[in-house]
Write a protein that binds this DNA or RNA. Structure first.
Lengths: 153, 153
DNA sequence: ATCATATAGTTAAACGCGTGAATAGTTTAA
DNA sequence: TTAAACTATTCACGCGTTTAACTATATGAT
């Protein structure tokens, strides 16, 4: 690729990803802020979609230290949305699950987020948005590989 | 579009955008964290690319309250990276500019971020990444419109 | 010209989330 | 059995955010 074109693509990417992230986060927040922070929503979503979720797994998925996860889980557990249960075999590990209250709240916030995402996704042709998401997923794969290589140094 | 396809696209979008954001932010942080936080980098970048930048403008662009901007600017000004100058005509407004030190640091961090973005952008065909960024920019436009409509309620 | 209203920015308190270091408790392996 | 490794937590501290109150300045209707 031509150097100049690459530079231009980089600038456009940096600008647009910043812009979309800020605005999307702000819109999601507007939908769910009475119930959960955006991070809390994603944590709950992750637990709901995962079998036998642990703090370590969340820390890995969210790219933060385990102590940051403990803090978030504490807040959610204090509100009775999440339950901790120790593994009987290996008593170091703690499994995280949603309480009934947590599941209900997740359904509520998830629906709001889905409606929001639907409202902008449906403004594209199916072919365009499908191609977009395909490339986005490739990018996710590349970044995951880069993260792993970074750690392996 | 078919309901089922839409639901699938929404799920994929939510997952992949979460994933890319977390990983990209973490990679950027890894590059610049000795010098600036990621937010500070974006603030400095915005000021550098803007003529006569004000707190209000930043609050608008970053979708946060003005007091959040004041806090960030205070930290950067304390380090001598940003200067405040009052408008002589309208003495309420304060223009934000980078000091020489701030400009130098911006160049340094910007280069690191560019190299990082380049390293994953160049893993795509030019046609694919161009189409991706084009759609991404359309999405930014849609979200901007949605934000404005939200405010106008 | 004055006075109410609007605007730009700041401050302060409180909260959520992040890091890094220290700690407790529990395997695991030499 | 003892040392090393691992899971999770706590603590101290910093950054970024919101809300509410405040300062200072500008504007506009009367």
């Amino acid at each position: 690729m031509d150097k100049k074109i690459i530079q231009e693509l980089i600038d456009r990417y940096v600008s647009v990803s910043f812009d979309v992230n800020k605005k999307a986060e702000s819109l999601i927040k507007g939908q769910i802020e009475e119930d959960l922070t955006v991070d809390q929503h994603y944590i709950i979503r992750y637990i709901q979609n995962s079998k036998e979720c642990t703090s370590s797994e969340l820390a890995e998925a969210f790219d933060v230290n385990k102590s940051a996860i403990t803090a978030i889980i504490n807040r959610l557990a204090d509100r009775g949305l999440i339950e901790r249960t120790r593994d009987e075999k290996d008593r170091r590990v703690v499994y995280l699950t949603l309480s009934d209250k947590g599941i209900d709240l997740h359904h509520k916030t998830q629906e709001k987020v889905h409606l929001l995402v639907e409202s902008f996704i449906t403004q594209f042709d199916e072919s365009e948005i499908t191609a977009f998401i395909n490339t986005y997923e490739k990018l996710a794969q590349i970044l995951t590989t880069m993260k792993k290589e970074e750690v392996g140094e």
